[in-house]
């Protein structure tokens, strides 16, 4: 199944990727080439196969409800582009 430029625009929106018009054409082409190739999986009948949910049969990995030291706030904010009032600052949301 192919994707249109419109589809790619939607994918870019869902992925929060700003694309130029030129980008859109390029990605449409390369995504379609990949999708064409991936279509080869259709050859294989997997109707009766259980999907592999987890790599190893690991389960019930827990920690006890015990406090651990949090980071200093300085460290928490150290990598941020903009901070203020002990918090991360972001531009207008709506």
């Amino acid at each position: 199944m192919q994707v249109s430029e419109k589809d790619v625009e939607q994918l870019a929106f869902l992925s929060r990727l700003d694309l130029t018009a030129e980008d859109k054409a390029v990605y449409t082409k390369s995504l379609n080439a990949i999708l064409d190739y991936l279509a080869m999986l259709k050859k294989l009948d997997t109707a009766a196969v259980e999907p592999a949910a987890h790599v190893l049969p690991i389960k019930n990995v827990f920690r006890e409800d015990k406090l651990r030291q949090s980071l200093d706030r300085e460290q928490v904010l150290a990598n941020a582009a903009e901070v203020g009032e002990g918090a991360f600052v972001v531009p207008r949301i709506v």
Binding site: R16, L17, D18, V90, P91, R92, I93
Partner: peptide
């Protein structure tokens, strides 16, 4: 971070 007026554009520009 690539600055923008709102969060949506900041996200998309930064990631783009």
């Amino acid at each position: 971070r690539v600055d923008a007026d709102d969060v949506l554009n900041m996200f998309s520009k930064t990631r783009g």
